[in-house]
């Protein structure tokens, strides 16, 4: 059923040239005995139109990887190549969606979504037209004049996604965009993301710790180890497309979840034990 490859194995499947290459990326925070290696020799790639998820327990360096790929952290070793360019700062081909709610509270939905075009000096008529298009695409038509404070968490996150998509990035990079949402909203937004990704043939890299979300949305899943974050294995998800949230009730879906969880459980347990150890060490002695 699944096509599981070892981390060290180079994929040789006849496929288009990767759009995003992460090659032996290494990042350490601090020096000396207190130094923490966040990601260690991480390598994988994303091909055009592909949806890849990076999954791992808390503390596996997912967000560090997100920041490196997005160009927000540039002092790393190894290479992140976006369409052949080494990423050393935000790359115009990469659009980022953040985990935290990131709409501008002082702008209405339309102005939020049109913001990147405003920065580029796109004329008002054109930018509003394009903003309207992407607002409709994320299913927020009719809410253009609403302020973010009048929207639910899921709607605000859709505004952020529309704001990123309006720049028509070649690669959509998302860091746990649904982390703050309830499970039902998460599944429904997953449908919306799948539909957009399929409609736009959007190359997407999703960073997540949510197993069902990763399997529901992805073509491939990169499983990370707990600290230091390394690629444990890559799993190809061979579920039919177009896909909807109904897929979560299928037997194949359940098998993928169980299979990946078997790997993740070990890493999550290490993470939990580490956190407990640190808490014990920090606790006052009574």
């Amino acid at each position: 059923m699944s096509n599981v490859a070892n981390a060290s194995t180079v994929t040789t499947v006849a496929a288009p040239k990767p759009q995003l290459v992460i090659d032996k990326v290494f990042k350490r925070f601090g020096d000396g005995p207190g130094a923490v290696v966040a990601v260690d020799q991480v390598s994988f790639d994303v091909r055009p139109g592909e949806f890849v998820a990076v999954i791992g327990p808390s503390g596996c360096g997912k967000s560090t990887l997100f920041n490196i790929i997005g160009g927000l952290l540039d002092d790393y070793s190894g290479d992140v190549l976006c369409e052949g360019d080494r990423v050393a700062g935000p790359h115009p081909a990469i659009g980022m969606v953040f985990q935290e709610e990131s709409t501008f509270p002082w702008r209405n939905v339309l102005d939020n979504v049109a913001f990147p075009l405003e920065l580029r000096g796109v004329g008002k008529a054109e930018r509003l037209e394009r903003a309207h298009h992407f607002i409709d695409l994320v299913g927020l038509g009719g809410f253009e004049k609403r302020m973010p404070s009048e929207l639910s968490g899921g709607m605000r996150q859709r505004v952020s996604i529309a704001r990123t998509l309006v720049s028509q990035p070649h690669i959509l990079l998302m860091d746990e965009p649904f982390a703050a949402l309830d499970e039902q909203t998460r599944l429904l937004l997953g449908d919306k993301i799948t539909q957009i990704q399929q409609d736009l043939k959007q190359t997407t890299l999703l960073i997540t710790h949510n197993l069902t979300e990763a399997v529901q949305l992805s073509d491939r899943i990169v499983v990370m180890t707990y600290r230091p974050g390394r690629v444990k294995r890559t799993v190809s998800i061979d579920l039919p497309r177009p896909r909807t949230s109904d897929v979560v009730s299928s037997a194949a879906f359940g098998k993928y979840v169980a299979e990946i969880w078997a790997d993740l459980r070990e890493e999550a347990s290490r993470g939990m034990a580490d956190a407990e150890g640190r808490t014990r060490g920090a606790a006052p002695r009574g």
Binding site: G71, Q99, E100, F104, L119
Partner: peptide, 18 residues
């Protein structure tokens, strides 16, 4: 100012003045 908003600005390659 929430750091995520600053990160949005950085990801959009905004100048210091912007």
């Amino acid at each position: 100012t929430r750091p995520v908003l600053i990160n949005v600005g950085k990801s959009l390659k905004m100048t210091d003045s912007q």
